[in-house]
Design a protein around this nucleic acid. Structure first.
Length: 560
RNA sequence: UGGGGAAUCGUCUAACGGCAGGACUACGGAUUCUGAUUCCGUCAAUCAAGGUUCAAAUCCUUGUUCCCCAGCCA
């Protein structure tokens, strides 16, 4: 974009940080984005990325990318690469790339320290028993019979857990806090579990893995994070976050601040559910353009600038909210409008024969690549006797407000001539398959010497010169505004979320289209070449987003 | 009386005791060789009830509604 992006609007977290800077509590800001590599990043992560990296950028601080890889059962290498790619694509640079697994050794030492100080113990209850002992939301839990083992016993047991002497699940290390706490997280939370799973980074070095609550706060402290930003569901974990840091006595004690997750209407932002869509084949992959994943949106043609703008617009608060798709689409249109190359493409072709146009004549009309920005230049588009126009641009029984083609009506062909429809040709089913028109040779270039007004301008391609393409049109993935809240979200998938058109006709310049360039097919929307499904002789375009359509509204009103 | 949070136009979000503002949407209108863009305009909100105050979205009291927590997930 030509204009510099303004800094993000303020919010309560930025206010806190500004306050900490003003008061001298901090002289430099350090944040982090801590994804678990167990799936692809989605629009909700984009919110967190923009927040964490955006704050670091605007306050002249640093932001780390840290993989929260403490559960090898779920985590994979593939996801890490995808996440790195997505963060970079969004336009951010991390200060350091870290892994929670980098800290397994110091974490172990911290655990030993807690044991020595009588703040942690090895419990030998089964998972089921631990659950029973935990009590309920309203009833206090009761202490494990192993809670008062001696420090020596605990040390020995924990050591042997680490050395692989016990079966998975035989023992866990727990913090000794308060089994009667009204906060369930404080009822002696598990710190370590035995898990004989190969870790994608540490291999088989460890058979015990630290839990999130133990790992996260300490990782933050190790990295000298000043503000640890996370979502609302971790609010109840903050006392534990602080407890661990206080008991381990880390020199750095980051402040955890929670904000509301992003919810987008008519979609889901749950890695588990997105994963399910992929595994059950409801979508083609994580980067299916209908997915709210960063990779899906990228493939669809959404831009990083649009996503950043969207994240700025939605704000940061502690209130549960659900954003309308229109906000996202607005950000996408606003960005693309600036620089998308204007071209002509016909999605549903209707043949038009211009009977008074010379049979073998071909004229190259000059078309602007961006009417609002002449610097983007012009191109030549071939025009001939037989062309295709959009089927929707003809109506047999057209209302007065319909400014396009109908028998006896005149329209302007963009950058070419005025044509008037004189006859129509139908097939045996009564469907219109061809229009017979005349053109006015005096109107070349799109204006007439007599200055007569033509209300409608339509796009077209020369039949002989057109190139064929497939085009994917997308609609919302779900028909329910909040599919995630329903019993079975899969039941609410929109059967019409993907419409594939296979006989589209595009102007010849598109033969050289590349998947990095955003196009506006005039009057129909923004498109991008699909980088996966396209080949030299087989073009596949994805419609990123439609243009606003005033006629669609009028038409809808007429029909209702 | 388990604990922890949150309530402002249809949807988001500002205002931190002093004119309830902005964005998106919707609806009008102007311009237009894209029914696009651009421009102008209109509709539209403080969860409720009390209280304090010259003045309350903001402070106090009492309610109401919604969200989160009982993984050896994060």
């Amino acid at each position: 974009m030509s204009t510099e992006e303004a800094t993000a609007p303020s919010n309560f977290i930025r206010n806190i940080i500004q306050g900490d800077l003003d008061s001298g509590k901090h002289t430099a800001i350090q944040t982090r984005f801590p994804p678990e590599p167990n799936g692809y990043l989605h629009i909700g992560h984009a919110k967190s990325i923009c927040l964490n990296f955006g704050i670091a950028k605007d306050f002249d601080g640093l932001c780390n990318l840290r993989f929260d890889d403490t559960n090898p059962d779920k985590e994979e290498e593939e996801y890490m690469h995808a996440i790195e790619e997505d963060v970079k694509w969004l336009g951010f640079e991390w200060s350091e790339l870290k892994h929670a697994s980098d800290y397994f050794q110091p974490l172990y030492m911290f655990a030993v320290k807690l044991i020595v100080e009588g703040k942690a113990y090895v419990d030998s209850l089964s998972a089921d028993e631990i659950r029973e002992y935990r009590g309920t939301l309203k009833a206090p839990g009761k202490e494990s019979p192993h809670r008062n083992r001696s420090v020596e016993d605990n040390l020995g047991l924990f050591q042997r857990m680490k050395e692989g002497e016990f079966e998975d699940g035989a023992h866990v290390l727990r913090a000794k806090i308060d089994m009667a706490s009204p906060n369930m997280n404080m009822r002696d939370p598990t710190l370590y579990r035995i898990k004989r799973t190969h870790h994608h980074r540490t291999g088989d070095d460890w058979v015990i893995y630290p839990m999130y609550d133990f790992t996260h706060c300490l990782s933050d402290a190790i990295e000298s994070i000043t503000h640890s930003l996370c979502t609302l569901e971790f609010e109840d974990h903050r006392p534990l976050y602080d407890w661990v840091l206080d008991e381990v006595k880390t020199p750095c004690h980051p402040q955890q601040i929670e904000f509301a997750r992003l919810e987008l209407k008519y979609t889901i932002t749950s890695k588990r559910k997105l994963q399910q869509l992929v595994t059950e084949g409801h979508v083609n992959d994580w980067d299916d353009p209908r997915m709210p994943t960063i990779s899906g949106m990228r493939r669809r043609g959404y831009t990083a600038a649009a996503l950043r703008d969207f994240c700025d617009r939605i704000g940061i608060t502690k209130k549960d909210s659900s954003i309308e798709m229109a906000v996202l689409e607005n950000s996408v249109r606003e960005d693309l409008n600036e620089y998308a190359l204007r071209v002509m493409g016909v999605l549903n072709p209707l043949k038009v024969t211009i009977k008074n146009y010379p049979d073998d004549q071909v004229e190259n009309v000059e078309a602007q690549n961006h009417p609002q920005n002449p610097d983007m230049g012009t191109r030549k588009v071939p025009f001939s006797k037989t062309i295709y126009i959009e089927h929707d641009d003809f109506m047999e029984d057209a209302p007065k407000k319909f400014f396009r083609l109908s028998v006896g009506r005149e329209v302007r062909l963009r950058y070419a001539y005025y044509i008037t429809c004189t006859d129509i040709v139908k097939n045996s089913n009564g469907e219109v398959i061809e229009l017979i028109c005349t053109y006015d040779p005096e109107t070349k270039g799109g204006s007439s010497p007599d200055g007569r007004k033509v209300k409608g301008t339509i796009h077209w391609v020369s039949a002989e010169h057109a190139i064929d393409a497939k085009i994917n049109l997308y609609d919302r993935l779900f028909t329910h505004p909040n599919p995630g809240s329903t019993e079975n979200f899969v039941e609410h998938l929109n059967p019409e979320s993907l419409q594939q058109l296979s006989h589209c006709k595009l102007e010849p310049s598109l033969a050289n289209a590349n998947p990095e360039t955003h196009y506006q097919f005039e009057r129909t929307g923004y498109f991008i070449l699909d980088k996966k499904d396209s080949a030299k002789d087989k073009l596949v375009f994805n419609r990123t987003v439609t243009l606003r359509d005033a006629w669609a509204k009028i038409d809808k009103q007429n029909n209702s």
